[in-house]
């Protein structure tokens, strides 16, 4: 089954630091911009919701047509946002948890400035592999 998925990481200062289209569906030309638009629009909801719960994983906080936005907020208030088809919640949670581990490794790199763009190709490969596995 063809799935649509767009994954971005937003730093605590609301700057996107990583973006990846990880879906298997054939791409529409304007899809990337549309996905970014939906995800960024969901940031306000995340901000309100993040402080009402102690959970890091916020499931299905926003909808757009048949697409759902799920978010994972780290302790440092970095947000992992995923736009996906509504199914497979366990997979998404596992995906976020494993990406979180990868992100912590990036953060521990002394040559990485927290809040700057993640340019590591290793990270990118791993995230895409995780997306294939779980989404």
């Amino acid at each position: 089954m063809a799935t649509t998925a767009c994954f971005i990481i937003v730093s605590r200062n609301d700057i996107p630091i990583y973006e990846a289209e990880v879906g298997s569906a054939a791409k529409r030309e304007d899809a990337a911009q549309l996905h970014q638009f939906i995800l960024h629009a969901a940031l306000d909801i995340v901000q309100d919701l993040a402080w009402t719960t102690s959970a890091m994983f916020l499931k299905g906080i926003d909808k757009f047509n048949d697409l759902v936005v799920s978010v994972y907020v780290t302790a440092g208030h970095t947000r992992f946002m995923l736009l996906h088809n509504p199914h497979n919640d366990d997979g998404i949670k596992s995906f976020f948890q494993e990406v979180h581990e990868l992100y912590v490794k990036i953060l521990l790199n002394p040559l990485y400035l927290p809040g700057s763009r993640i340019t590591s190709s290793h990270f990118d490969t791993k995230v895409r592999a995780l997306a294939r596995k779980y989404l």
Binding site: N109, P110, L111, S120
Partner: peptide, 10 residues
């Protein structure tokens, strides 16, 4: 070198 990855600038 645990955790370290050289960015393009270095």
């Amino acid at each position: 070198v645990d955790f370290v990855e050289l960015p393009d600038t270095c």
